[in-house]
Amino acid sequence: MFCAGIDIGSTITKIVIANRNEVLASVVQRTGAQHRRRAHRVMEDALTQAGLATSDLDYIVATGYGRINVPFADAQITEITCHMRGVSWLDPDVRTIIDIGGQDCKGIKVKDGRLDDFIMNDKCAAGTGRFFEIIAKVLGIDLEEIGPLSLTSKNPAEISNLCTVFAEQEALSRLSEGVPIADVAAGIHRANASRIYGMVRKIKIEETVAITGGGAKNSGLCHSLQERLQLPVFIPPEPLITGALGAALIAGEKAARVGGPGLAALKKHRRWDAATFFSDSATQAAMQPTNSQHSHMG
């Protein structure tokens, strides 16, 4: 039974295709402004990687911020539940998940493999990928460098302000005082780790703690969080895809529940044509090659 999970995050779209409990393909691409068309493209790549056709997919679950914009999804489940499922499958001992996304940050509690509690921050850039993007720019380095650089610091700078705009100013004034870039970067990571820790504490942190999302790819942030947590931390080998993985696993359960004849009916009504938010003729024309490409897959 082939199932897919598609996680359309604010910044990155991820797809996992699984056959029962075996992952066949995982694809990660930037989301961009047009979720619907993006969903289609990323799914194409994932199917190619898995060596499958669209008609092979028995059940598709969409998740993430753009989950309502996936015309071919059979069900929508929130990213909170999907992350929980994905991480739990990778490590059943995990009780607390800290998911640091591009534009939000979540704490999720797991109990007996089920969603127990959660907390979410999406009102403020502090503790999200966006914060680090802005600060990396101020420091004149690439986003990928900021974490490793911060780990070289022996004397992290004091950064007190977590409003992204003011933190940017504070980082600038530290730099003008002659504080080394690595120390400023380390200070920024510490301050964000404190903020994230303070939020997740409200749902009572229990070990094992997992860190997922783009933030888990920042070694400096993981280090600062671990320092704050004083607990063992599990970082999945591919921390970006736990939501899509969870969605694929839930899709598998749903497919099993629906059963053969129901699945055939679902597939028949699935919309594979590329949808778009725009109806003007230029956009339609631009969509044409994508359409024809898909017709042979179906």
Binding site: T78, I80, L115
Partner: peptide, 10 residues
């Protein structure tokens, strides 16, 4: 909405 839906899912 995501929070309410996740709460319903739990």
């Amino acid at each position: 909405r995501t929070r309410f839906e996740a709460f319903a899912e739990s």
